[in-house]
Amino acid sequence: MLAVRGEPPGDQESAAMRIAVCVKQVPDTEGRLRLAADGRWIDDEELQMVVNESDEYALEEALQIAERTGGEVVVFGLGPARVAEALRKCLALGAARAVHLLDDAFAGGDAMSTGRALAAAVAREEFDLVLTGSQSDDDGFGATGSVVAACLGWPHAWLVMGVEIEDGGTAKVTREMESGMNEVLRLRLPAVLEIQAGINNPRYASLKGIMQAKRKEIAAVAAADLGLDPGAVGAAGATLEVLSVAFPAAVGGAQMLEGDAATAAKALAEALQKEVGVI
């Protein structure tokens, strides 16, 4: 069943693209954070969980490519039971179905062990492209998609700001560089593209999409289903361990101007005039 259908052949960019999108569920950390009792992460019990920002852009890009080529998008997510909510959201946006890597053995992974598990799940099907976000908003390794590519033996690009599927099994990819420049390059497919935030304008789920998502499949797979040794995934397969987290010590530290908005603003204007001399 194809959830996203493109226009008739005349409008097609190239052959129908089958696209896997890897998404991560992360805590929304706007506002005050509390450390967990063991001091190794934040207490996320009360935090809202959301789809990682650059992954939303990756899903949108995949949906657009699938629509242009008459292809299909399958989302992959790894994590505890609550990750099904994130996958359901992706289904509401237009993905055809989802695969949930759900196993206690996957817990506590880093980019290396998580990338390995995702690659094993993706490799059970035929895909032309794997799209991921460039970096997660929590761990921020910026590496999981590259590990997926390494495991699959596919070329990849990080910080992708544009994708054009070409005839003949290649893609023209625009990649962000430092200081406001982009590099344009050509990759052979299949490939892994790690999408950067800002590449497109992610759509909102329609009511119809939300209703349809309820009937779409979320297939749970465990490490054993993927032929993976529990020692190779999750914390056991990770190459990095978090010992502790802390709020950064404010270096220098700002002089905080107290009082209500008017009082603080007045004090600031005075400082800008007398000490900085810009007024």
Binding site: T29, L33, T239, E241, L243, S244, V245
Partner: peptide, 15 residues
């Protein structure tokens, strides 16, 4: 840094 610099993590390579 983790969480966009809101926290710093001390980590060890275990692999």
């Amino acid at each position: 840094p983790v969480l966009g610099g809101k926290l710093t993590a001390r980590v060890r390579a275990t692999g």
